[in-house]
Design a binder for these strands. Sequence first.
RNA 1: GGCCCAUUGGUCAAGCGGUCUAAGACACCGCCCUUUCACGGCGGUAACAUGGGUUCGAAUCCCAUAUGGGUCACCA
Length: 487
Amino acid sequence: MLPVRVRFAPSPTGPFHIGGARSALFNWLFARHYGGTFIVRIEDTDLERSTRESEENILNALRWLGLNWDEGIEVGGPNGPYRQTERLELYRRYTDALLKSGQAYRCYCTEEELAAEREEQLAKGEMVRYMGRCRDLSPEQCAALEAEGRKPVIRFRVPEDHVIRFNDLVRGEVSFDCGGIGDFIIVKSDGIPTYNFAVVIDDHTMSISHVIRAEEHLSNTPRQILIYEALGWQVPEFAHVSLILGQDRSKMSKRHGATAIEQYQAKGYLPEALVNFLALLGWSPGGEEEVLPLQQMVEQFSLERVSKSPAVFDLEKLNWLNGNYIRTSPLERITDMAIPFLEKAGYISLPLTEKKYEWVKMLVALVRDYLNCLEEITEHAAVFFDDKVAIDEGEAREILAGEKVPAVLKALKTKVTTGPALTETGAKRMLKEVGKELGVKGKEIFMPVRVALTGHTHGPDLNRVMAILGQDGVVRRLEQAIIGREK
RNA sequence: GGCCCAUUGGUCAAGCGGUCUAAGACACCGCCCUUUCACGGCGGUAACAUGGGUUCGAAUCCCAUAUGGGUCACCA
């Protein structure tokens, strides 16, 4: 078997999409599984829409996800440059060769003429394709057209009566009839090659062994194979991965919600959770365990286990996975990730003192069970940053209106005021003593205290809540509740 | 519309002719844990698109139909 060389070749025309990330991931997993090479190349032949900014975004997202590449843009390698607009000279060579051999020709049709042809075909229900008007122009005709000021495009002469077959590594045997493919453009009138042409030259000159990409490229494959054949090159293996769909089962796009990787990053999703989720979308591990560290995915990955049918993006499952990683990752890491969100909410200001950091860590440890993503920490932490407690409507107010409540709160306030700095065990002890002294049992003491301190009837462990609030915080909130009662 | 691809529970999916009275995960429901909630544990509801073949036997193979998707650019 040839050495495995795969590539991810995004066009830098917008934010880095979920679908692109999955393609990159599958290529990466494939390369790592077989000890091959993972290459990143930039396909920026669309001069209008390509920007360096989105190229940067994509590369950053790739790095954030942990998908490092061995060769390509920024890291270099023997087959560079890795940006298509920097390889124009190379494409020109092959264009000339095809022109010389008659496998390509110049076409002078205007966009208007092409559009008219297209509409006619569409109206007749035929396959839309170029009918070959300029196929057999003589040099004299070309010169005349050019004298008119028409700038030609270069089209590939598609052989008639030819069927392209290939064995797709995920879809199996696929075939296309060339009769349905018109002579397609390989070089635009501005001299820039089109995707279908450049991709073949790049993949070949970079010795790509397997082209793993999204299914939307399936119908481009016969065109590309035609070019490989015309140039006498060996055709690589293809693997077309099915698309990611939105809830309505159409190709996932912005209207389905967050589709850019950086949006998930900004909401506080962990890269490994996203990677794990993306891997599960269209691929299934052999065993029953679905929460998999990267290394295990590398070991288990194979194209044979990649699904042929499209997958609906399920945010609930991503949330579950991410929550899972939030709960099981080292506390310090989660704390560090949570800090920017707390800062942005105005709850803390940086830099943190050692003591304050430890305090934030306690807080994070307390609320992380509740989180789908780090962004949500602000809503769960809010109650610790404002001594003016807003009491929930309904049940919470009823609880606070209980007959024994003032006595309980006052007794606790006294205990906390006179006691040492609050700790989890200290709080627990005080609560117990208050209960004993007043002859009040369980719920009647815990619930009013919880409501007085947090405003809610539900929430994390009360002892730890008290420890985090600290002596002052607890006292202020108890006072406030007592005053509220007396009014 | 032409061409291409797909079709197992609400979602992701295992299954590659008998071991399928069809796994697992998310979601949902119930129970347990917890003087709350969440986490966690245990259990439950829920699926082979339809119709024809092939075969002793089909979720698995073939053909239609239906449904969904992709693609038909001087975009990639």
